[in-house]
Structures are given as C-alpha cells and as structure tokens.
Computed example of a mutant assay.
Amino acid sequence: MLTPPEQFGIVEPGLYRSDTLHPSHFPFIRSLNLKTAILLTPELPSRAMSNFFEENQIRLIDLALGSWKNNSNSNSNNNTDATGSGAGGQGAGGDSSTSGTGGGAGGGGGSGANMFTLTTPSIPAAPFQTSWWKPLSEELIKEGLEMILDVNNYPIMVMDTSGIHEIGTFMGCLRRLQHWNLSSIIVEYRAYAGNKARYVNEQFIELFDIDWITLPASLPIWWIEQETMWREEEEERELQLEQEREAEAHRRQEDLNQLTIRPSNVTTSS
C-alpha cells in the first residue's frame, strides 16, 4: 500500500512538495521516480531518509543547511559544528555537474565515488533568517527557485520539516513568479497551513522581489506553456485597452465636431 506524506502535494507536473519523510512513505516516493530532492530546513535528514535517497540515486540538496553553514563560518565566534557534517568537497550524491561546493554533510570526506553525500550549495553568506519577520533568506529562495525551474533536475521534490511554513513561503514566491494574483497565492498557502498560517510568511511572499530570479536555460514544459499563455493574454489585454482608448478618442472627437458645427440659436434684440 502506497502512503503519501501528510503534507504531500503536486505543485506542477514533475514538481512536488512534502513534509519530512518516514519509512512508511518510501514506497510512494519511489513511485515518483525522483531525480532531485531539496530540503529547506537547516537540519540533517534522518539516516533512513539518507539511505533511501542513496539507494534510489536521488540527489539530495540541503539549501538551508548551506545558508546556515555559510553564515556560521562568517561569524568569528562560531562554535564547532554540532551537526556532524563532513568536511569534504563537492557532494558525490549527484552527477558531476552538481552546483555548489558546500561541505558534504553526513557522508564523511566524500572521497568515494559511490558514497552518498548531502549537497549543500554555496549560498552567499547570509543568516538563515535575515530578520525577525523573514522565514527564509532571499538568497535561499533565489537559489531554490532557479533549481526547480531547471528541467535537468526533474522530477524534483521540495521538503521541509512540517511541510507548511518554509515550503509554503517558497511555493508562494514561485506562484508570484508564475504571475498568480496574491489572493490566489494566499488561498493555496492557507490550504496547507490551516490554523498554523503565519502572517509574516504571507508578507514575505508579497514583498519578495521576483525580478531577482535568473531563469535557467532549460525550463520545464509546464513553465514554457504557462508563460506562453500568459504573454498571449497580456497581448490580448493590451490590444483591448488600445481599442478602448481609440474608441474613447473617437467619441471625444465626434463630440467636439458636433459642438463646432452646431448652429447658433442666439438672437439679437434691436
């Protein structure tokens, strides 16, 4: 029997969201034929989850851990890393083109060609939470969105511990990039969050600068189709507005012409 995670969802074809995985979820996740999994929380995955990704040759990328580690390394008073992460180079869990050179976590030195290593991309040094109201850093969102818009990473799943807060914010920013209106974005966010919804997450989504995102060269089919449809709709709206402006200008010109040629009814008295 296939048991999906509690907060599992299909975002777009080949793009999934989920909370943390447990062994009972593995058969279902295996059926998705994932190529890449992204973690948004600065916590090492469980041994069972790491083994599952290794056995199924799924590249595991912990964006938040990379951001947290970079921020920790930039602090002169940083303590010894308590996560037990290795000090290896580029993770060997994916192919040789894997971006990011963060330390391999949970996999030792990462020297063995077949050894699974958690990949932590090199995100510009910034706190995991840059201020009290930001659930994620902008750098992490940018890095993650560019990854899930690269068709070479598909099929792909994005996870956090609860499946609600970080991932809800992340997907809200994706919806902004897809030209969704804010009301629809908030409805989707609250559908997963329920009574755990946070206003700061919704505020972050609204204020996130989507112009900061650099689109990859190879985009998913669903993105290309949606962008084409959106551009066609924008062109239709522009054409309609132009026609309305021309009609209004024509009406005004007719009114002016009627005022100009209207005979005078003024009579003079002797």
Results as ranks from 00 to 15, higher is better:
E244W: 05
L215G: 09
E235M: 12
W132R: 15
W68Y: 11
L256T: 10
Q243H: 07
R30H: 01
A249F: 02
Q57Y: 07
I210H: 02
A87T: 14
G110V: 05
L44Y: 12
A193P: 06
E202C: 00
S31K: 11
S218Y: 11
A125P: 07
Q258S: 05
S269E: 08
G144V: 01
I38C: 03
L60W: 04
E234T: 11
N33E: 09
W223R: 07
L21E: 01
A126H: 07
M115R: 15
G91A: 12
F53G: 02
N73R: 14
E232A: 09
D150P: 02
G9M: 10
T214A: 09
E227K: 12
P45A: 05
D209C: 03
A191R: 15
E188L: 04
L241T: 12
G172S: 05
E139L: 00
L32I: 00
L44R: 15
R252D: 08
F204V: 02
R198L: 13
L21V: 04
E235T: 05
Q57M: 03
M159S: 13
S218R: 14
N152M: 10
Y16Q: 03
Q178G: 02
V11I: 12
E233D: 13
G104D: 13
I148G: 04
E139M: 02
H22P: 00
D211E: 14
G86C: 05
L60Q: 04
L21P: 07
L256N: 10
Q240I: 10
I210Y: 07
K196C: 14
Q90N: 09
G93E: 03
P13H: 01
P127T: 05
Q7R: 12
I156F: 03
E254V: 09
I261F: 10
L207P: 04
W132Y: 13
G172F: 04
G163H: 06
F204D: 06
N77R: 14
Q240M: 13
E254N: 01
S270T: 05
A92T: 14
L149R: 04
A191M: 05
D211W: 04
P135K: 08
E242L: 14
K35E: 09
V187N: 12
G91D: 10
E12C: 01
T117N: 14
W133S: 15
T268F: 10
P4R: 00
I148F: 09
N114K: 11
E236F: 06
Y199M: 12
L149C: 00
P155N: 01
R30L: 07
F204P: 04
G106T: 03
E6L: 10
Q240E: 15
N195D: 11
T161S: 14
H25A: 04
A87L: 11
K69L: 14
P220S: 05
G110Y: 02
D95F: 04
I141Y: 02
I141G: 02
N78V: 08
Y154T: 06
P13C: 01
D62V: 00
L207K: 15
I221Q: 15
R190H: 06
G108F: 00
D160C: 15
I29N: 00
I123N: 06
G88D: 02
S50L: 11
E54H: 15
R237W: 10
H165Q: 11
T20W: 11
L259D: 07
G112P: 09
Q178H: 09
N56R: 01
G168W: 00
G103S: 13
T41Q: 08
W230P: 04
H165L: 11
I141P: 00
I123A: 02
S74L: 03
G112S: 11
R190M: 06
